[in-house]
Design a protein around this nucleic acid. Structure first.
Lengths: 101, 101
DNA sequence: TTCATCATTCGACATGTTTCGAAGTATAGT
DNA sequence: ACTATACTTCGAAACATGTCGAATGATGAA
């Protein structure tokens, strides 16, 4: 196992090691089957980060921080769409993590 | 997903989030196929923690700490055997983690 | 253009993690 | 009993993380 590969995986695990982030990615994974884009302006999940902030009892800036962590770990793709953001769970990263052991 | 279950998984991910611990568990997983006990006094892996200390360039006390972290996360079972320790990777924990997504 | 809304960045603080060396415990061999 | 070996615990230092509120940026609507 190369040092680089090891670092990449530990970054993924670190991203998932926080209960709030784990909750976030699990919820988003449910909303984005087949790695499709998940729009924040549909159904009950309108205002994506605001909703997470309310549900998790955290400040919006903290949610933004957690989103960034998940993105840097390669687990989340984030795109601006007007005022909101579009997010998609990177299923490849999830798969590679599952296949590690 | 219950709060308790979420905490349990994030503890597993946290244990794997450190490159040194990830390296340790991956090596041990190789040595203990079928969740059998892995004795520290066989083959090239004699003096388990001492070896890891040397190979990873860490102090023995640090390795001991990392072993403990892995044990508390439920990933490793540790038993004393004379001067050494017997360790076994908890395959159930690994499996539950793989099946989370 | 001005305003309201959603998201991000920044600075600060509290808390947690990683690491070491020193001291302690347990055990096997002499 | 003494010594050597393997591991653990403890205290401390350095560093990283989680969180907030305030300030900033970006976008769509009036």
């Amino acid at each position: 196992m190369s040092e680089e590969r090891l670092e990449r995986f530990s970054r993924i695990f670190k991203a998932l090691s926080n209960p709030h982030r784990l909750r976030i990615i699990l919820e988003l994974a449910q909303c984005t089957p087949g790695s499709g884009m998940f729009t924040t302006t549909v159904d009950q999940v309108e205002n994506c980060q605001q909703e997470f902030a309310k549900n998790l009892g955290l400040a919006p800036s903290t949610i933004s921080h957690h989103f960034k962590e998940l993105r840097l770990a390669g687990l989340l793709r984030i795109k601006r769409d007007g005022k909101n953001v579009l997010v998609s769970v990177n299923q490849e990263a999830i798969e590679s993590m599952r296949n590690l052991f």
